[in-house]
Design a protein around this nucleic acid. Structure first.
Lengths: 142, 142
DNA sequence: ATGGATGTAACAGAAGCTGTTGCAACAAGG
DNA sequence: CCTTGTTGCAACAGCTTCTGTTACATCCAT
């Protein structure tokens, strides 16, 4: 499955960084983050690179370098993560243009864009309601 | 892009069948449906096959065969179409199991499942609020 | 029987994602 | 200045999914 796990990877990384920060370790290397997620450090650097471009994390290069949160975990929402990782939208329109001779073929794309837009909007609202701090709290319950 | 257009294909087919029905043509062949969507009839047979298994359309085989709506367009919601085409959920969990030695690795999956479940729920509610008749009306406005 | 339609398998091509290797760029600390 | 540890990034392989196509068996109204 090509199931998009980028949202999961990024959120996991942020939650783990938030916990480390709370324990006094402000800076983590991509290798340390990768160890928790159980994947390759390059995957993490790609993911954290997205988050850096979105202003959610900061990076220090050179020896003794690593990653840290750019904001408090309470103030990073999953919507920002969603936008940062640039996940594919749940629905796509036609690959090839429909038949414009047909009244349905002519009007279906704006009609569907409207529906898909409403779906995207409620999704985003829900994501905006959850912060990394929320995820971390829920994670540590178990 | 592997953007899932299956939802779009199925909804387009149903809207077109609803318009044809209103015009007095109850039965359409996969070729006639394909002509509006501008794709291959086999794609349509696959899509309509999904909808048939979900009870949204009916098929007659043999000569002079074809497809017709199993219910009024007002009573087919996009949520039913969504379930029928079995689209992939917007987010997936980790491909490989996270590190269970880490407190975040241990608890992150149920925590994320909760969030993703809430997102899915609001998406479904929105899709349930739109019928094929709504889509057709919106389509013919233009 | 025949002809027109569906059902479905098999395959090709394109695209995306994860994972891996390799190496340049960079900066802290001696 | 040099060493060392780390990020940035390109390139590639393997896997999966999706669309599109061909081919053919199956079905059934006439």
């Amino acid at each position: 499955m090509a199931a998009n796990s980028r949202m999961t990877i990024a959120t996991h990384a942020l939650a783990w960084m938030a916990l480390a920060q709370r324990r006094g370790q402000e800076v983590l290397t991509s290798e340390q983050v990768a160890a928790s997620i159980n994947t390759n450090p390059v995957i993490i650097r790609r993911s954290l690179g997205d988050l850096r471009r979105a202003g959610l994390v900061e990076v220090r290069r050179g020896a003794g370098a690593g990653w840290s949160l750019a904001r408090e975990p309470e103030e990073i929402t999953l919507l920002e993560v969603y936008d940062a990782v640039d996940a594919q939208p749940p629905f796509g329109l036609h690959h090839s243009e429909p038949n414009l001779e047909c009244p349905v073929g002519r009007g279906i794309r704006p009609a569907l864009s409207g529906v898909y837009g409403r779906v995207e909007r409620v999704m985003r609202r829900e994501l905006a309601d959850t912060s990394i701090a929320d995820v971390l709290r829920e994670t540590l319950v178990n």
